[in-house]
């Protein structure tokens, strides 16, 4: 089973070496690809100097466009499973095997690493948890899927799901909308417990002020997806 880890990175000069070195040293069985989303800092230079496998977007597309590029790469190279893995060091690679297992056993099309199933490790701030809870209910109302950690960017997809996302992936703050799209198009979603770390360096892309915009935009996007009935699965299968 060929597994690709896609690591979207934007201004991650302080984290990217640690993240990739850990994967290269401890998990050589997995292929990885860093997607440098037109970083303004030294990320590109580090990736080139260290000879990391990477892809550089000439224009900043945001997390959605970056991750989708990874899915496109995976489709082009025929990977069986794609793992989305943050470049800021919040995700633990030791859980990759757990993410892949339900896919290998044919139980799920997308597996999401959740911080809130066993409530261990870094749990994020109260306000963010509240926001995530609201998103959980919006997603359940609109798609029927129950996902406790809808904003988790630690997820694995099988080939069909990867092909779907390569064609259609939400762009701004994509994770909750991507879950809704998966559920409404009949893909099977599974959550597994993982422990995440606090970001060690750098700044999160969602500032307190942006989180208000985030909540409005993401909730609207989920509702809109539900209302428009944007179904792509059949198209992808064809």
């Amino acid at each position: 089973m060929q597994i690709l880890i896609i690591i979207p990175a934007y201004n991650e000069q302080e984290n990217i070496e640690r993240v990739v070195d850990n994967l290269v040293e401890n998990y050589p069985q997995y292929d990885y690809l860093v997607i440098n989303d037109c970083s303004k800092d030294q990320t590109e230079q580090i990736l080139t100097r260290r000879g990391y496998r990477h892809l550089s977007l000439p224009v900043n597309l945001g997390i959605g466009g970056g991750v989708q590029t990874g899915y496109l790469y995976a489709v082009q190279h025929g990977y069986d499973v794609v793992i989305q893995f943050d470049g800021d060091g919040q995700h633990n690679a030791e859980y990759i095997a757990d993410l892949v297992r339900p896919i290998a056993q044919g139980e799920a099309d997308i597996v999401i690493g959740s911080r809130f199933l066993e409530k261990e490790g870094f749990q994020t701030s109260f306000l963010r948890r509240l926001g995530i809870r609201i998103l959980k209910h919006t997603i359940r109302l609109c798609s029927g899927a129950v996902v406790n950690d809808a904003t988790s960017g630690f997820r694995a997809t099988n080939r069909a799901m990867t092909e779907f996302y390569a064609q259609d992936y939400a762009q701004d703050y994509p994770e909750p909308e991507a879950i809704t799209a998966a559920a409404l198009n009949g893909f099977r979603i599974k959550e597994i417990p993982v422990i995440m770390n606090e970001r060690k360096a750098g700044v999160s892309s969602i500032s307190p002020l942006k989180s208000v915009y985030y909540m409005i935009k993401v909730n609207l996007a989920i509702l809109f997806y539900r209302v428009t009935g944007n179904r792509l699965k059949k198209k992808v299968k064809q």
Binding site: I35, L55, S56, L57, P58, T69, Y73
Partner: peptide, 10 residues
């Protein structure tokens, strides 16, 4: 276009 260009560049 940006994605295609980046994939080609790689």
């Amino acid at each position: 276009l940006v994605q295609t260009q980046a994939l080609l560049e790689k």
